[in-house]
Amino acid sequence: MLAAAGAIVLLVAALIVLAWRRQPAGAKRGGERVWIFGLGLAFPAVVLAALLGFGLVIGERLMPRTAPDILRVGAEARRFAWTFTYPDLPGRRTDGVLHVPAGRPVDVAITTADVIHSFWVPRLAGKLDAVPGHVNVLRIEAEQPGTYQGVSAEFSGTGYDGFAFTVVAHAPDDWAAFMSGNETEARQ
């Protein structure tokens, strides 16, 4: 996308610079057909149609599809902390740290207790807002075990600067330990 954009910028710049090139009087310099219909209409229409199709296909792939081994977790934001819950572990909640198994798709059900926030772990997925009264589901998947930084990415007043959380993706053994309720052991 960046390369294509760069190429288009160069094309436009070149066309502008070439306008200064002196030509013998009467030389044909391209009429409405070239400028309006060729470059103005046809060129962007083709590029944009391709880009739109590409974006929608990628977007479709990122949607939370049904799969056999999905884990569901809940994420509730409030100024300025995230609380995570685990429907598979009733009563279990963690503050500021979301525990997930590595290599498994996870659906995060996001909501808020006060103002609008946004759940964003750049390395795992795009962001999705936490909107009062609504529950939005984001599909994330950590391929490798490890710690992933997340932030709230919707302005929420003073305190927004440091409003962050972490996602810990566990290897299968660690995850089993976490599931059995042994959180300290599960922490790496």
Binding site: A19, R29, W35, L39, G40
Partner: peptide, 12 residues
């Protein structure tokens, strides 16, 4: 883009 290229065409 129609407008941008109309302007560049005007320069030409």
């Amino acid at each position: 883009s129609v407008q941008v290229f109309a302007w560049i065409g005007t320069l030409w």
